[in-house]
Design a protein around this nucleic acid. Structure first.
Length: 219
DNA sequence: ACATTAAGTGATT
DNA sequence: AATCACTTAATGT
């Protein structure tokens, strides 16, 4: 009794601003509070999905596993977050494509998947919550992909400049940003921006039609 | 002085 | 990252 009251309070304080009264009450009665200690798995790849987690405290790291067994970090779940992957597969009875591990002492509220569809039509606040978290998760992943692409181009540019200086036997290169962009299948604007950063990092100097690769310059 | 080309920047997708 | 639109700087005629 005292236990259920405590849980109810926790849920109320966390979600009352987000959800309507009726939903908070249902959440409290149907939800199951679970504590996950550090490095414990809340979910592993291939396991059947029976519940949707709502994070009450702590943080979860959500990952995928590729065929080599390498872990690929997808995103973190924190206070008030829920797992988009789980939300997505909830209509079918499917198995998890992801692994969730606790980064710290974490408390989650487990909601049976059957409640998903029911609440989706019943509560507009729940619908908004699900759609919202799905959206923010998607944006996080897009950002991550963007970052990777950016780093790859930057590394390609550095390699290009080095190779070029190597065959010229000099750090003095007579090239335009436009030519570099063509060689790297990029656009002039992108190269200009990356070059500007390299210049500010002290790796190169720039003039019109000319680039000095400082690490290949006589000292 | 004027035109042309290279490089820099902000905003948008 | 790529594209667009626009500015600024350097160079050639």
């Amino acid at each position: 009794m005292t236990n259920s009251m405590l849980v109810q309070d926790r849920i109320a304080t966390r979600f009352q601003s987000l959800f309507e009264e009726d939903l908070v009450r249902e959440l409290a009665s149907v939800g199951e509070l679970k504590k996950v200690s550090v490095d414990d798995f809340l979910m592993t790849v291939g396991r059947a999905i029976t519940h949707i987690p709502l994070v009450l405290s702590g943080a979860l790291k959500v990952m995928t596993e590729d065929e080599n067994g390498d872990e690929l970090l997808l995103y973190y779940l924190e206070l008030g977050d829920t797992c988009a992957m789980t939300l997505n597969c909830c209509t079918k009875k499917s198995k998890s494509a992801v692994t969730a591990i606790a980064e710290e002492e974490t408390e989650v509220l487990l909601v049976p998947v059957e409640k998903m569809e029911e609440w989706m039509v019943k509560y507009s606040s729940w619908r908004a919550f699900v759609l919202g978290s799905y959206n923010s998760r998607l944006n996080e992943m897009l950002e991550a992909i963007d970052g990777l692409a950016f780093n790859n181009m930057n590394e390609r540019l550095i390699k290009y400049l080095r190779d070029r200086a190597m065959v010229m036997h000099s750090g003095n290169l007579n090239i335009t940003h436009h030519q570099i962009a063509n060689d790297l299948n990029s656009s002039r604007v992108v190269i200009s921006r990356l070059m500007k950063k390299l210049e500010m990092d002290g790796l190169i100097e720039q003039y019109r039609n000319k680039v000095k690769v400082l690490e290949f310059m006589p000292k």
